[in-house]
Design a protein around this nucleic acid. Structure first.
Lengths: 255, 255
DNA sequence: TTCGCGCCTTGATCCATCTCAAGGCGCGGC
DNA sequence: GCCGCGCCTTGAGATGGATCAAGGCGCGAA
């Protein structure tokens, strides 16, 4: 049992005064030049629909380390990541932490709850995001079926991923977990139009450990072990070459 | 590592000839008397909408033990449980199994994938369900916004539950897992209009173990331990009284 | 260039849970 | 009412990963 949780920092998004928020910028034509758009739920929207949605959005820029969603707080907003990466996690009262997932460009956050937020979210790099007031967003959803479709598909995909992670957490050994993690990061990079092979790890060992249900020590040991076996090559601490990808693939599934 | 997987049985739903399927019954006015309706995604539908949806549904009745969804098969159908209970699970090639969840009256199955089924599903008791051909169902969704709303909400709830389970699998000790499980079953029973206290366990120890990422032996030991401590009382093997519910609640969270 | 700090790695030991191995017990069939 | 079989419980020993404990190393600040 890892009892070495991390105290979440109370910082980041100020409350409900977007007008006075230094991180809030007008979004007027922001969508037109948004690089995240092809990866976002906004992708299937027409220009008119986009404008409709945009009326309710605010652009935010946060520094790395900012916690912008707090588990248990009323779920007032939902978010669309437009640049940077973030992590979402759940905590137990004694500080044990489970990282639920990592968010990258185009990811949407906030579907999952109608009550309070079920997770906390923290920027891992400087982060840009569109923020929507939840109530208006739900109203817009009713008016834009394409958006609701996109959101349903995306939520279904997230559910599928969560189930895969349940298999990992419940039944896979440490080596298998790490291998699965590296490959899933690689696949994600491809979907975002980046390269499959040198995988970037924007998160630290502690985050990886808390995502995989392990300790940092174990993650570290497994990585060196995989390196020794020639399955990966480490470039510094946050870049991994997947030499022998096929071997990693079969390791994921228990071979 | 539990390597004692169970070989899934290939039985249950015949392929695509509903006309010749002895389990298929005409649904004509079935919805009107459906007891599962208040708990289902059909709940918010008007009579006319219900009729529209019903045109594409087939009623099935399966015996306990029937596997009616096979992980990896093309996802041709989705289902609505109208009576009985089922489990969904994922397998690793070597037989390790993770039970993803248990389905009861009113639960919907099939949102989660657009490609092949990501999970297998097996009846735990005699099971009644409405089956929809996936393609038509998606078409109907577009015509019935209320249905799509309901489905989105439900999928979001499932995602929330999956995340909670990730916390359990990644970070909770065996005692905490079992306590969490008993309480979640109890809460579910309440939502279905049953009693909160004598909790029924329609699944065996192996299923519980595979759901909690443990072994049957550990589940068994923890249950006797909790009994010894007076936190629960066992009535036979499949009924549990939650004496000292408060103690169980705090145990869930690590106390 | 050096210093200091945080993060990562490595080593030694421990322990919660798994694994292996017997029984026990309840339930359906005969 | 007895018998068998499957499932559940209990025990004893093995072990993967956690915990505890040092270093090492890279990077930013001065």
């Amino acid at each position: 049992m890892s009892a070495r949780g991390i105290e979440p920092r109370r910082m980041g998004v100020p409350g409900a005064q977007p007008a006075h928020d230094p991180h809030c910028l007008p979004t007027a034509e922001a969508c037109a030049v948004c690089e995240a758009r092809p990866f976002s739920i906004c992708a299937p929207l027409s220009t008119a629909e986009l404008a409709e949605l945009d009326r309710f959005s605010t652009t935010l820029h946060l520094p790395a380390g900012a916690t912008f969603v707090h588990e248990g707080d009323p779920a007032d907003h939902c978010f669309n990541i437009t640049a940077g990466s973030a992590k979402i996690y759940k905590l137990l009262p004694d500080g044990r932490r489970q990282v639920i997932g990592f968010l990258f460009t185009g990811d949407f956050l906030g579907t999952a709850t109608r009550g309070p937020y079920g997770i906390s979210a923290e920027a891992m790099t400087p982060l840009s995001l569109c923020r929507f007031e939840r109530t208006s967003f739900r109203a817009v959803l009713s008016r834009l079926p394409a958006l609701e479709h996109a959101l349903l598909d995306r939520t279904a995909d997230e559910l599928e991923a969560a189930r895969e992670q349940m298999l990992l957490l419940g039944r896979k050994a440490a080596r298998e977990r790490v291998a699965s993690f590296l490959l899933s990061l690689s696949r994600r990079a491809v979907r975002l139009g980046r390269v499959a092979d040198p995988v970037q790890l924007p998160m630290g060992r502690t985050d990886i450990a808390d995502y995989l249900g392990l300790t940092t020590e174990t993650v570290s040991r497994v990585l060196t072990q995989l390196r020794t076996e020639g399955m990966i090559r480490l470039n510094g601490t946050s870049e991994v070459h997947l030499t022998r990808r096929a071997a990693l693939e079969s390791l994921c599934e228990g071979a």
